[in-house]
C-alpha cells in the first residue's frame, strides 16, 4: 500500500534533481516539522553551526523549512580558534550566500589564558573552549532553544536523548529524568532561564547524511574529500599539518598523504583517514563498507569511558 504513492511532484524544469527517495523524504519531513515547531514555540531560538557535514544538512533543512521566508534565527559558531582554516572560509561564504545572521563566540578567558589543545590537554581544552564557551554564548544571547545536529546513532548516550532535550538554567542535562516524548508531539514548555536543545537530525544515520548531501547537492567543506595533504602522525592519529601553530615534537615528521576527514572538529584533535574518496559516490561506497565508526577519529570521545555523557551533562552538545 505505501509503495504506490500518488505522483505528487511536478518536475521543476529548472531542477535537475530527481525527487528524494521515500526514506530521505521521511527524514526530511520530520526535521522540517521540528524546525517549524521550535521556531513557533520559542522566543529566541538559535542554531548551533559547527560547519561540519551535519551542520550543512541542518542549515539546508532550516532554509527549506522556512522557505519562502529567510531563516528566522541566527547561527551560532563557537570558535575555539583551532578550527581548520578551510572551515572558517566556508562558514563566511555560506553566511554571505544564504543571507544568514551569524554570531561567533570565543571564550575570552580561554583566549586570555592562552588555552590550547597542546598546553592543556584535550579534556580541559574542550571543557573551556567548547563547553564553557557555549554556555557563555547561550547566556549572552538569552536563547531559549538551540538547534543542534546531533544524531542518535553517533554515540551510546545520544541514543537516549530526546528530540527536545530539556536543560536547566545552568545548561545541565539530566539523562535519568528526561521528559517522555510520544508521537511527534513535543513539549516546549519551560520556565525563564531554562532552555531546550532541539535535534532535528536525531533519526538520521551517517549514511543518510551523505546520501542527502548528494541528493540535495548541499555544499560541504572540501576537507571531506580525499586530496594529498601535509600530515603528521601523533597518538595514533593523522593530524593535518598546515597551521603554523602546530609544533612538531621530537621524532615527528611532516609528510604528504592522500587523506580525507570523516568528521571535522578542531584540527589538532581530529584524525584523518587514508582514503581515495574524491566524490560523494566514493564516500558513500566507503561508508557502506566501513568497519569503524565515524567518531573513531575524535580524540575527545576517548578521554574516559562514558566520556560523551559526562560532557553532555555539563552542557556540551
Amino acid at each position: 500500500m505505501p509503495h504506490n504513492l500518488p505522483e505528487t511532484e511536478l518536475h521543476n524544469p529548472q531542477s535537475t534533481k530527481p525527487p528524494l527517495d521515500p526514506h530521505l523524504k521521511a527524514l526530511e519531513n520530520e526535521a522540517i516539522h521540528i524546525f517549524r515547531e521550535v521556531a513557533a514555540e520559542f522566543e529566541r531560538p538559535v542554531m548551533l553551526y559547527s560547519i561540519g557535514k551535519d551542520s550543512s544538512v541542518l542549515l539546508h533543512l532550516a532554509r527549506k523549512a522556512f522557505y519562502p521566508g529567510r531563516v528566522p534565527f541566527p547561527l551560532l559558531h563557537i570558535d575555539t580558534g583551532w578550527k581548520f582554516q578551510e572551515m572558517i572560509a566556508f562558514r563566511d561564504e555560506m553566511v554571505e550566500k544564504y543571507d544568514l545572521d551569524l554570531v561567533v563566540h570565543t571564550n575570552p578567558r580561554g583566549a586570555a589564558e592562552n588555552v590550547t589543545p597542546f598546553s592543556h590537554g584535550s579534556a580541559l581544552y574542550t571543557d573551556i573552549m567548547k563547553t564553557e564557551a557555549l554556555r557563555q554564548a547561550l547566556d549572552a544571547g538569552q536563547y531559549d532553544a538551540a538547534f543542534g545536529g546531533a544524531r542518535r546513532d553517533e554515540e551510546a548516550s545520544r541514543a537516549k536523548e530526546r528530540i527536545y532535550s530539556f536543560r536547566t538554567p545552568d545548561h545541565r542535562w539530566d539523562p535519568r529524568n528526561q521528559r517522555p516524548e510520544l508521537w511527534n508531539i513535543y513539549n516546549g514548555m519551560i520556565r525563564k532561564g531554562e532552555s531546550v536543545r532541539a535535534f532535528p537530525l536525531s533519526n538520521w544515520t551517517e549514511v543518510d547524511i551523505w546520501r542527502y548531501i548528494q541528493a540535495e547537492e548541499i555544499p560541504i567543506v572540501p576537507l571531506y574529500f580525499a586530496k594529498k595533504r601535509p600530515i603528521v602522525e601523533r597518538d595514533g592519529m593523522m593530524i593535518l599539518a598546515e597551521d603554523p601553530r602546530l609544533e612538531l615534537l621530537p621524532g615527528e615528521a611532516k609528510r604528504e598523504e592522500v587523506i580525507r576527514f570523516r568528521t571535522l572538529g578542531c584540527f589538532p584533535l581530529t584524525g584523518a583517514i587514508r582514503s581515495g574518496a574524491t566524490t560523494l559516490n566514493d564516500i558513500i561506497s566507503e561508508l557502506e563498507t566501513a568497519t569503524v565508526s565515524e567518531r573513531q577519529g575524535r580524540a575527545i570521545d576517548r578521554d574516559q569511558s562514558g566520556s560523551m555523557e559526562k560532557k553532555k551533562r555539563e552542557g556540551y552538545f
Partner: peptide, 26 residues
C-alpha cells in the same frame, strides 16, 4: 575555498572503473 558542490554523478563512470571491487552505490 570554493564549496565542493556535489556533482558526483559526472564522476560516476570513472569512480566505478577506478574501484572495480566496490559494489555499486545504492
Amino acid at each position: 575555498t570554493a564549496p565542493a558542490i556535489a556533482n558526483a554523478a559526472l564522476d560516476d563512470a570513472t569512480a566505478v572503473s577506478a574501484h572495480p571491487a566496490q559494489e555499486p552505490v545504492r
